[in-house]
Simulated assay, not measured.
Amino acid sequence: MRDIQRSACCNCQKKGRGRALKQAWTSSKADLVYMDIDLSTNLDSFKPMIAPLITGDAGLATGSWLMKQSRTTRGFKREFISRCYNRIIRATMKTKFVDAQCGFKAIRRDVAQKLLPHTKDTAWFFDTELLVKAEYNGYKIHEGPVEWIEDIDSRVDVVKTATEDIKGLSRVRQEYGQSSFGEMAAFGGLLLFTAIFYLWHLTINGMANSYYAAAAQAASINWTAWLFGSLDAANFVSVDKPPISMMIMGLFGRIFGFSSWSMLLPHALAGIATVALVYNG
């Protein structure tokens, strides 16, 4: 590793870690590495982190607080929020990296030059956006364990930062043609309203149709009647409808016991599913 012969300062007129990093990285002619200035991460993790970048096996490397091999010391609130946030990232963005927030990262300059123009956040979400867009653009991310001790004098408002990060995730989802969290909430509300509409007083009209109720009852008692859509358990008469609906009602009758509720529930669920399909169609 070369000795550092000189260093340079970058003066940012506006606040924001993402803004500062972006300005420093775009003006730098060196291979790019950054870490939290409080040295919370043990420097023993430095060489293992940059090794895949040197060999070309990865375009970006990041430390992880959440890997099993990591040794971290931090408060419950930060630990809880961090784990929840990273689970949200993986669930909503379908990414593979474990930890987006560890302030110990390295990136090849050629990769940075391609990703930074598309990384819009200027604050704490910068790290997450960079990792997500790196993975979405096919760059391999090396993730390694770290030894990290929380700076108890940190000025970071963890709750506020997490809230802003959620907003950032929603924006990035939209950039890649996915629903924003607002749209997801609206969709969830629509499904909830539909479920209430269908299930409220579901059995107010009893069996609804005694003819099909008899077939559903037969299907819940006799497997032959279930298979052929018979009107009675003795299989003398078949229903003049495709048997799949009778089969489903018969299965619900076997599972929950035959009643107007178990017979009509599949139809209510089908109505809710139809709304979901039309909404996403």
Score class of each variant (00 low, 15 high):
Ile4Tyr: 11
Ile4Ala: 11
Gln5Pro: 01
Ala8Tyr: 08
Cys9His: 06
Cys10Gln: 03
Lys14Cys: 08
Lys15Thr: 15
Gly16Glu: 08
Arg17Ser: 08
Ala20Glu: 01
Leu21Asn: 02
Leu21Pro: 01
Ala24Ser: 08
Asp31Phe: 05
Val33Lys: 02
Val33Asn: 00
Met35Asp: 05
Met35Tyr: 03
Asp36Phe: 01
Leu39Gln: 14
Leu39Glu: 14
Thr41Ile: 05
Met49Pro: 00
Met49Trp: 00
Ile50Thr: 03
Ala51Gly: 10
Ala51Arg: 12
Pro52Gln: 05
Ala61Cys: 02
Thr62Gln: 02
Trp65Gln: 12
Leu66Glu: 00
Thr73Asp: 06
Arg74Trp: 11
Phe76Gln: 09
Phe80Tyr: 13
Ser82Ala: 13
Cys84Arg: 13
Thr92Arg: 15
Thr92Ser: 15
Asp99Val: 03
Arg109Asp: 01
Ala112Lys: 05
Lys114Gly: 00
Leu116Gly: 02
Asp121Ser: 06
Lys133Ala: 01
Tyr136Trp: 00
Gly138Trp: 00
Glu143Gln: 09
Gly144Ser: 11
Trp148Asp: 01
Val156Ser: 03
Val158His: 15
Thr163Pro: 03
Glu164Cys: 04
Glu175Ile: 04
Gln178Ile: 04
Ser179Val: 04
Phe181Arg: 08
Ala186Trp: 09
Leu191Trp: 04
Ile196Tyr: 14
Tyr198Glu: 15
Leu199Tyr: 15
Thr203Asp: 14
Thr203Pro: 06
Ser210Glu: 13
Tyr212Phe: 15
Ala215Gly: 12
Ala225Asn: 02
Ser230Arg: 06
Leu231Gly: 10
Ala233Val: 13
Asn235Ala: 09
Asn235Leu: 03
Phe236Met: 15
Ser238Gln: 15
Val239Ser: 10
Pro243Val: 10
Met246Asp: 05
Gly250Ala: 06
Leu251Gly: 07
Ile255Cys: 02
Phe256Gly: 04
Phe256Tyr: 09
Gly257Ser: 12
Gly257Tyr: 09
Phe258Asp: 04
Ile272Asn: 07
Ile272Met: 11
Tyr279Pro: 11
Tyr279Ser: 13
Gly281Arg: 07
